[in-house]
Simulated scan of single mutants.
Amino acid sequence: MTELSNTYIVSDEQRRFYDENGYLVIKGLLDFATLYNYKRRFLQICKGTVDRGVIILVKETSLKNKGVTGENLINKLHDIHYDEVFMTYTEHPRVVNVVSQFIGPEIRIMNSMLINKPPGSISHVPHQDLYYFPFRPIDKIIATWTAIDDATLENGCLYVVPKSHKQGILYPHENSIGASRMYHGIKNAVLQEPRVNLEMSPGDTVFFHPLLVHGSGANVSKHHRKCITVHYASEHCEYIDVRGTVQDVIAREIEDEAKRRGLNLSFEEAWQIKSKSVTAPSKL
């Protein structure tokens, strides 16, 4: 097997596609062995055979009352970027190198998750990631989403609404019926452009804009759909006060969640305290 280099240079054509559509899929960015380590770590944490540290386990709400356990119940691992195994993704040279070409070399990891979509999982309604973030500017934030398993229409692959970021609008969101806490979706979403389903193979990685409208389908297959995802921001981003804006509801929810965990933190402080600096590799 040919070893992948630590860098991946985004072409001018790829950059234009991202700027125009709000997302870019890079095929085979990561190798199978790397992905297998993440799947194995996820299963270890589900079984409780390793210390999960600060990682938060989130259960699939729609499956809680159906008697399923372990891998068949866990929807996501949240805040994985301090774990010794998962940090090899959040700080992976190839991933960070691509990120640096969009937001610059001085980077912070703001949010990280391993998402597991067990059979029977419901859809994730259209939403925008910026809704959750109290930092700006917008063009200095980017998300990565790498398929660990095959992502198909049947098992609930991502979908995106191309060009939806170009409106420059952060839409009002609301709680999604039947979904886990803080899974908010756009209110009365009227999307002019058609959705594009992103069916992806393991190692394929999509990079997308924080205003891009996106979601995922229900898993009606008999197999799991795992991915690993991170939100990065430039070290030069600044925190803003979102009180009285469309982000007010989620800000209060996150502050309430911090209190439930014994922490008296503002919305902004909650993001500051968990973020982590990462260094982009030099270009060869």
Rank of each mutant, 00 (worst) to 15 (best):
238 E>K: 13
139 D>Y: 13
257 E>S: 11
120 G>C: 07
168 G>I: 06
176 S>A: 15
193 E>A: 14
131 Y>T: 05
256 D>F: 09
174 E>G: 14
25 V>M: 07
151 A>C: 14
282 S>P: 00
127 H>V: 05
175 N>F: 10
241 D>E: 14
242 V>M: 08
154 E>I: 06
7 T>C: 03
57 L>S: 10
152 T>Q: 06
251 A>Y: 07
88 T>A: 03
109 I>G: 06
241 D>I: 07
8 Y>C: 00
103 I>S: 10
185 G>Y: 05
185 G>P: 05
239 Y>L: 05
241 D>G: 09
143 A>W: 01
68 V>F: 10
129 D>I: 11
180 S>L: 10
108 R>Y: 11
226 K>D: 01
209 H>M: 03
71 E>R: 11
272 Q>A: 07
206 V>T: 14
191 L>E: 09
52 R>Y: 07
34 T>P: 00
154 E>V: 07
135 F>D: 03
201 S>L: 12
96 V>Q: 06
281 P>S: 04
209 H>V: 05
102 F>H: 06
26 I>V: 09
26 I>K: 01
188 N>D: 15
217 G>H: 14
190 V>R: 13
257 E>R: 12
162 P>L: 01
151 A>I: 07
223 H>P: 00
144 T>V: 12
158 L>R: 01
222 K>M: 04
247 Q>E: 06
258 A>F: 04
217 G>I: 08
28 G>M: 00
28 G>N: 15
39 K>A: 11
159 Y>P: 04
27 K>E: 15
62 S>C: 13
59 K>P: 09
97 N>W: 08
213 V>H: 02
123 S>N: 13
143 A>V: 01
174 E>H: 12
215 G>P: 08
71 E>H: 04
229 T>I: 06
160 V>P: 06
